[in-house]
Structure formats: C-alpha cells, structure tokens
C-alpha cells in the first residue's frame, strides 16, 4: 500500500504549507506529488482530457499520465466514465479504472446531483484523504463538462490547485464537415437551451448547437429513440427566427471504432422527421451569410496517403 505523509490538520489552513514540488519531472514523466514532497498534506487531483473519439486524438501529455498510472498502480487512483475508460484502456492496457457509471443509474439522483457528488467525492479523495487522483474525461475537460466545472470550483474554494491535461474537443471533429469562415463569428449553445430555455440565437452568426436530440438538460442520451421529441421543440423555437427552408446541417459521429464525422443537410422544417444518433450537433448557418457556411463539407480522409503508392496504382 502506498503510504502518504500526513500532517496534523490542526494549526493553520491547508495553504500554510505550499508544496514546491512540480508534478512533472524533466522529460515530461509525470510522478505523483508525494514521491517528491515528504511533507505535503494533500494528494493531488489531475483531470485528464482524452479526446473525443479515437485513441490517436490523445495528447502526449495524456498518454504519459496514463502510462505513469499503469506503471505505478499503487500511487494513483484512477476514475472514469464509460467512454473515457474505453479510450484509456486502449492506451494503457491493464490500468485499473474505477467506474463512475453507477452515478447514472441511481434512483432519485439526477445528473446535476450526480456531478456535484462526483466533484465532492473526488476533491475529498485527493485533498482530504491525500490520494493522487486521476479523473479521466472524454474530449476536452473544458467543454460542457459539469463535473469538471464543479471540481474546479470546489478546488478553488479550498485553495487547492488541480492539474488539468487538455484534450481535443469534439468541436474539431464536428467542424470537419462544415466550412466555417469565421467572418461573422460563431455561437455555441446546447440545443437544450434553445428548445426548452427560450434562448434566442443571433441570426447574423452561425451557431453550433450541441447535445442535439438529448432529452434531459444534462445530457441524457443513452439512445436515439427519444430524440424526435426534443427535435420537434427545437424546430419550433428556431422557426420563430429562421424560415422553414433555412438549411441546417446535422453533424454527428459514425461511432466506434472509426468515429467518422458524418453530416446531412436538411431544411429546418424537416428537423424532427427522423431521429438523430447519440452525440449529434446542429449547425445553423447565419441568415444572409456566405453560402459556403451553409454547405456540407466533404469528409476528410483519415488514412495517411502514401503519394508513391497512389501514383503506382
């Protein structure tokens, strides 16, 4: 069992001792805090963004964090939800990851409560119990992740620093199928806000609506069956600002293992005509904006093309 040094909690705030050890060694190898710091009261909390889809989206920093944890399992406690676990296992086979999936299946516990509880639990594990915690999340930790937001706020309130390993966000995959010029900006909203919270869009800028078709404000998207319910509401709200034949692009992923960026262009009036897959988004071009921004872009090729073999064939 990994032994942690603990100081008596009395006499001074948690900040009275500032650990000067850095969590990253030269050459980028990540070591748990306590390996260097013999007097530090607290453990550490590292949020690791693992990218939105395929293992090759992970940053080197994230890969190193996973490899450090698998090499020294007694020093780290690793936690994650389903998709993040699958990605991490692909990079670091044998890594013991504690599954947080149970938070989605507790009676009487909605998503906001589950995320708040998760934040309380992980900050406690790190800063009160003194463990070195890795919290694995899919995509970028900073885009639409309520648990990460709650962890950051809690840690700040406790004057504790967390380590954040950035990850590629889903936006990169999604923007693959549009030609966004950037000339009139870009608005980012949850489709839920528009459909149910009465948020009006700026029709002069293109908008990306995430969490399309999800039927709970906090990302309840286990299957696509219930998506038309929200799509109908969203269509009606958008119709107050956009004409029925306004082109919109439904942007989604083909899912594992390829996660190709898929898209279809439809008229706004047809938005609720068929369900959308889990993890869908809606691109709403601006009114009067460039046609290019209302066009479905050709898919990019994933394979590396070897120019020589292309010529030979």
């Amino acid at each position: 069992m990994h032994r942690r040094q603990k100081l008596p909690q009395s006499g001074g705030s948690q900040m009275s001792h500032r650990c000067t050890a850095t969590a990253t060694e030269p050459h980028g190898a990540i070591r748990p805090h306590s390996v260097r710091c013999e007097v530090c009261v607290s453990g550490s909390l590292t949020i690791v963004g693992l990218g939105p889809a395929r293992p090759e989206h992970l940053t080197q920093e994230a890969v190193q964090a996973l490899q450090a944890a698998v090499a020294d399992p007694h020093s780290w406690r690793v936690y994650g939800l389903a998709h993040a676990r699958a990605l991490a296992e692909a990079i670091a086979p044998g890594l013991q990851i504690r599954s947080l999936d149970y938070l989605y299946g507790l009676t009487g516990v909605d998503r906001p409560l589950a995320y708040a509880d998760l934040a309380e639990m992980l900050t406690r594990r790190a800063f009160s119990d003194g463990h070195h915690v890795l919290y694995l999340v899919a995509g970028s930790p900073l885009f639409y992740n309520d648990a990460v937001l709650a962890i950051r706020r809690r840690a700040a309130a406790q004057e504790q620093a967390i380590r954040l390993i950035h990850g590629m966000a889903f936006l990169d995959l999604v923007l693959d199928r549009v030609y966004w010029t950037g000339h009139s900006g870009l608005a980012l909203w949850s489709a839920w806000n528009v459909a149910f919270d009465g948020v009006a869009l700026d029709v002069g800028a293109p908008t990306l609506l995430v969490q399309l078709g999800e039927f709970g404000s906090s990302g309840d998207a286990l299957n696509e069956d219930r998506s038309p319910e929200m799509l109908g509401k969203l269509r009606d709200r958008l119709r107050r600002q956009y004409p029925a034949d306004h082109p919109v692009l439904v942007l989604y992923s083909s899912g594992p293992p390829e996660y190709r960026s898929e898209g279809r262009r439809i008229e706004l009036s047809a938005l609720a005509d068929q369900p959308v897959p889990v993890y869908s988004n809606l691109w709403v071009p601006s009114i009067g904006g460039p046609d290019l921004e209302a066009t479905l872009a050709a898919p990019s090729v994933r394979r590396m093309v070897d120019p020589l073999s292309e010529v030979l064939s």
Binding site: Y79, R98, L106, G108, V109, L113, A114, D117
Partner: peptide, 16 residues
C-alpha cells in the same frame, strides 16, 4: 433509508 444521499453513499463504498 431509501433516499438519494444513501444511494450516493453506497455508490462511493462500492467504488472504493
């Protein structure tokens, strides 16, 4: 008692 706080606490025990 059957309440959300219990379910969350039991979840943590199972996790750890």
């Amino acid at each position: 008692p059957d309440m959300p706080a219990t379910a969350l606490a039991r979840g943590e025990l199972r996790l750890e």
